[in-house]
Amino acid sequence: PPHLPPLIFLYLLFIYILLNAAPLKSQAYFNKTAYLPCPFANPQNISRSELVIFWQDQEKLVLYELYLGKEKLDSVDAKYLHRTSFDEENSALQLDNVQIKDQGSYDCFIQRKTPRGLVLLHKIDSELLVLANFSEPEILQVSNSTGNSGINLTCSSTQGYPKPMKMYFWLKTQNSTTEYDSVMQISQDNVTELYTVSISLSLPFLDGVNNATIFCVLKTQPMKILIFSQPLPIGKAASQGDLFRFMLTICKRKKKKPGLSYEGDE
């Protein structure tokens, strides 16, 4: 077959690179603002009045269009109307009031209007990950209906995304620490798509143990952050006064107060 002219070959190579470039990654928090990047060097210093810039989601719905320097609202899908704007300084689309359903892939297109029609100059794919902080885990002591000697505990955390990696109880004494694994019970809100998780534990009374406390720990993803509950005193040192002060602290705590946290090693 005949060889392609150099200019056509370079153009086809450019289109191939555009279509196969790895997508840019971005993150945003639930109900906050996301930024979908579309970096464009513009080496020819082309005026905005000659460009058509727009973003599409994975269903090919238009989020925003800047047509020859002016916003074109009639192209924007109703689900994105009045939620998007162009951050010209950072060459990114600003998407407000982010919801879990906004997570996914997006495409940015930059075209130049010429006498022969629109010419594609630039295309960027991006992946948006939406996160929501789980509330501080809360330990509750439940009544013992089995008649066994010991204490029954539950722990729950709400309004988070994505699903956490793990949830467990962590018992700390003067001489040791013990981790009690438990199967997470997970539910998801039909509207917000946020998760609520809980676990339970039956623990025998700790005879002869002083200064023991138990925590509930939630390990989130993707950043593997550990969120600790307030400590619950148990064992001989856990007098009724200690338990009363613990419950009083729980009652006074604000909802979703951030707990102790650090990045896990795993």
Rank of each mutant, 00 (worst) to 15 (best):
P233W: 01
L131A: 00
N97R: 12
S91M: 12
G259V: 04
L13M: 09
P115N: 02
D242H: 14
Q56I: 14
H3F: 11
L10Y: 09
S198Y: 05
I139C: 01
E179R: 13
E266W: 13
Q56T: 15
L51D: 04
F215N: 07
E266A: 11
G259K: 00
I234F: 04
L206K: 05
R116A: 12
A21Q: 12
N133A: 11
L118F: 08
E127W: 08
V191L: 10
E59N: 13
A22R: 12
A237S: 15
G208D: 01
C251M: 15
S91H: 10
D74I: 06
S149M: 12
L131K: 05
L18Y: 02
D107N: 13
I199S: 05
E127I: 11
M167G: 06
V142S: 09
F215G: 00
M247A: 13
Q185T: 14
T220F: 06
E138N: 10
V62R: 06
S49D: 15
S126C: 09
S202V: 06
L18C: 08
P222F: 03
G235Y: 00
E127Y: 09
K219C: 07
N20R: 09
D265Y: 11
Q174A: 11
Q188Y: 06
D87Q: 05
G150S: 01
Y168I: 03
K113G: 07
F9K: 12
E266K: 10
M184P: 00
L201Q: 03
Y35N: 02
I8Q: 14
A21V: 07
Q221T: 15
C38D: 02
Q230H: 10
G104K: 04
E89T: 13
L206V: 03
I100S: 00
Q174I: 08
L61D: 12
K219L: 15
L226K: 07
E50A: 12
L118Y: 06
C108K: 02
Y180P: 03
G241I: 09
K257G: 07
F40Y: 15
D107Y: 12
D77A: 15
V217E: 04
S135A: 08
A238N: 04
S157L: 00
L24P: 05
F40N: 04
S261Y: 08
C251L: 15
L260K: 11
L36G: 02
G150I: 01
L194G: 00
H82A: 11
K252H: 09
L128C: 04
M184L: 04
T220G: 07
D77I: 04
P204M: 01
S85V: 02
P37A: 03
E65L: 07
F246E: 02
A22G: 04
P204C: 02
S229V: 02
K219G: 09
L131G: 02
N152Y: 13
L81W: 07
D77H: 14
L260A: 10
L61S: 10
S105H: 11
D102L: 02
K101S: 14
V209C: 00
A212L: 03
L68H: 08
S187Q: 10
Y106I: 05
T154E: 08
M184F: 04
A78E: 14
P5M: 10
Q111M: 13
Y16F: 11
K256W: 10
C251T: 14
P137T: 01
E127S: 14
K257S: 13
Y80L: 00
L36T: 01
